[in-house]
């Protein structure tokens, strides 16, 4: 892609993330999550509770909902001014293709670091259950769909409405309803499959479909958003 060449990266990041503020904020979030994982690890008998079909929202929510909420706010911070005073017109002009790869890059610029936070800090958080093995990896990557989905949903809403505030309202409403309903309203497209123990309380298949569906929908949302905001040819 155009902006992945090193020559373009420098000015590209300077334009979309002046003084690397976003990167610094994400760095600070990483440190906070790491410290939290270090000093407040998950319960050692985490799996036993899961087998008993308990909902462990108090333990998992920090990755299940809090990090997606932070990701959504970062997306808002990064994109909100695109649609004020029609800045998007010139940004669209400078995207030469019929797929807005610039928008894809800007999404990845937030989605990747936020998922890195999950992959790096979650194994520390769940270290009393499993550490530096396959199970430890599973425990962390199960939250990746949440960040992908929330950020993709935000981006889709924003490109559809051409308004960052409208996207914030829609995405926040989704998150709020999902949290308040204990993941009952959105069921298969809920974020709370881990917190509300879909794996044991419903079925492993249902849980896997939920995780997979969130990833597929995220990719679909991103594709539609990048097409919609591109040059129309």
């Amino acid at each position: 892609m155009l902006m992945f060449t090193s020559k373009i990266n420098e000015s590209f990041i300077q334009f979309y993330d002046t003084k690397k503020r976003l990167l610094k904020i994400m760095g600070a979030i990483f440190v906070i999550y790491f410290l939290h994982a270090f000093f407040m690890p998950a319960l050692p008998n985490y799996f036993e509770y899961l087998h008993e079909k308990y909902s462990l929202a108090g333990i998992d929510n920090i990755y299940e909902y809090t990090l997606p909420v932070i990701s959504m706010l970062l997306m808002f911070f990064a994109f909100v001014s695109d649609y004020t005073k029609k800045k998007y017109e010139l940004l669209t002009f400078y995207n030469a293709s019929s797929f807005n790869s610039i928008m894809l890059f800007r999404w990845l610029y937030i989605a990747i670091p936020m998922n890195v936070i999950i992959v790096v800090t979650a194994p520390f958080y769940y270290r009393s259950i499993a550490f530096l093995d396959v199970q430890s990896l599973y425990l962390s990557i199960r939250f990746i769909p949440n960040v992908l989905f929330v950020t993709a949903l935000f981006l889709l809403c924003m490109t559809m409405t051409k308004n960052g505030y409208a996207a914030l309202v829609v995405t926040s409403t989704y998150l709020l309803l999902d949290i308040l309903s204990s993941a009952r309203i959105f069921k298969i497209v809920s974020l709370g499959a881990n917190s509300y123990n879909y794996y044991y309380s419903i079925s492993p298949t249902y849980y896997l479909i939920n995780r997979l569906l969130l990833v597929v929908l995220s990719l679909l949302f991103i594709y539609v958003a990048c097409k919609k905001s591109s040059k129309v040819r």
């Binding site: 373009i8 000015s11 590209f12 002046t18 029609k86 800045k87």
Partner: peptide
Amino acid sequence: IHKIGYLPQDFDIYGNVSGYDFLSYVYDI
């Protein structure tokens, strides 16, 4: 885009970006 220049009616860019950084971005893109 390298053969065509465009100035929209409502020209605006991010408020915290300097003119030089913007021109540098356009040069690269």
